[in-house]
């Protein structure tokens, strides 16, 4: 392989993990996992319950500390990711168990991720016109404009999930991690989330989502990663991977 070939392969991946590990007690939730996420595509991660999908998302976003291995994002080689560094690395996420800022308004839930990060500078900043316009656009997309002054805790489950997706849109990063974005949503809400993911892709963002819904995985993803017991089971084009006997066995058993 020539240098230029290697370069083109490296730059076609936006994120790579090298032998990353996470143990809980004696159990390996993620076991020396090495995966590569292609740039600008929609990658789906599937696997049986307990296969380490959510743990992987938590490791990438720094929500859980790495026990070993390395994450490569662009030129950065990281052995430890602190949660507050993840936007600097170019990465943001949703949570499987929706985590909003409950007792503040829907609008403030969006503003809070748009504004100044430095604690000193933020003292002298207020929500500006540009913030308001962006928040308004996002709330129209996820259909929560009418609810903008309600507290987040007053929303229904589906609306809460949509607000979390909206909060991700308010972030401006390269990589978006969605942990089970479709679970428990009504059909029209699933369409909204699909629309958001497609729109992000149009802006050349990389999307990674975890899902159990095979229909959506087939429809939406360009690249598929199958995990089992914290390890990589298969990866590649969704159609090919889903017909892989090993994958079928992992899902359906013998």
């Amino acid at each position: 392989m020539t240098t230029s070939e290697r370069h083109s392969i490296e730059s076609s991946f936006v994120l790579q993990t090298l032998d990353i590990e996470k143990h809980f007690g004696g159990v390996s939730a993620v076991d020396r996992l090495s995966i590569s996420i292609p740039r600008g595509l929609i990658t789906a991660i599937i696997g049986p319950n307990g296969s380490g999908k959510s743990t992987l998302i938590n490791l990438l976003s720094g929500t859980l500390p790495l026990d070993g291995g390395m994450v490569v994002v662009g030129p950065k080689r990281l052995r430890a990711i602190r949660p507050y560094d993840s936007p600097n690395i170019g990465l943001t996420r949703t949570f499987q168990d929706v985590r909003l800022f409950e007792q503040i308004s829907v609008l403030d839930n969006l503003y809070v991720v748009m504004t100044e990060r430095s604690s000193l500078l933020s003292l002298f900043q207020r929500a500006r016109k540009e913030h308001r316009e962006r928040a308004e656009r996002i709330l129209h997309v996820v259909g929560l404009w009418e609810k903008r002054n309600d507290l987040a805790e007053e929303l229904s489950y589906g609306q809460r999930k949509l607000l979390e997706v909206g909060r991700l849109m308010a972030m401006n990063t390269q990589i978006y991690l969605f942990d089970e974005p479709f679970a428990g949503l009504a059909l029209h809400m699933i369409e909204v989330v699909k629309g958001v993911i497609r729109e992000l892709q149009e802006y050349d963002r990389t999307i990674i989502f975890v899902s159990h819904n095979m229909g959506i995985v087939r429809e939406l993803s360009d690249y598929l990663i199958v995990m089992d017991s914290g390890r990589l089971l298969a990866r590649g084009q969704p159609d090919r991977v889903l017909n892989d006997p090993a994958v079928i066995e992992a899902y359906l058993g013998n």
């Binding site: 985590r99 909003l100 409950e102 503003y111 991720v113 933020s122 207020r126």
Partner: peptide
């Protein structure tokens, strides 16, 4: 201010607000 909004977010979910860079 924006600072005050972050304080409230810290009150609501300290770990979640960290993921957004604070």
């Amino acid at each position: 201010s924006s600072f005050g909004r972050v304080l409230k977010a810290v009150r609501e979910d300290e770990d979640a607000i960290e993921v957004f860079g604070y």
